[in-house]
């Protein structure tokens, strides 16, 4: 279990425009130093944020990063909110304690 590493990675991704670009262009390289499990790393690499949510990513940090990345991908806010809700709702409210 490495929820703390998920949260630290989310924190680092969202720091600046440069960190967002670095993660977007070469996520493997960006994540190289983080102590993530294989499942967690794959979820980041595929930007499968529903799995990160289910694994216990902090909801606040996760949504901030989802929002930041969506801006660069041209998703409107209403569409993003709808997509986010549909993605996380099946997972309920997972334990996010690190």
């Amino acid at each position: 279990m490495s929820r703390g590493a998920i949260d630290i990675a989310l924190y680092e991704i969202d720091q600046t425009n440069q960190t967002i670009e670095d993660f977007t262009t070469d996520p493997e390289r960006f994540l190289a130093g983080f102590d993530l499990s294989d499942d967690e790393r794959t979820a980041f690499l595929e930007w499968d944020y529903g799995t990160l949510y289910a694994l216990g990513a902090h909801p606040f940090l996760l949504f901030q990063v989802v929002r930041s990345l969506a801006v660069g991908r041209g998703l409107s806010m209403p569409d993003l909110l709808r997509q986010y809700r549909e993605t996380v709702t099946p997972h309920g409210t997972p334990d996010y304690i690190t």
Binding site: H58, P59, F60, L61, L62, F63, Q64, L81, Y84, R85, V88, T89, G92, T93
Partner: peptide, 9 residues
């Protein structure tokens, strides 16, 4: 209040 969960916004 909720943020990042199913009931946000």
């Amino acid at each position: 209040y909720e943020l990042g969960g199913p009931n946000q916004f």
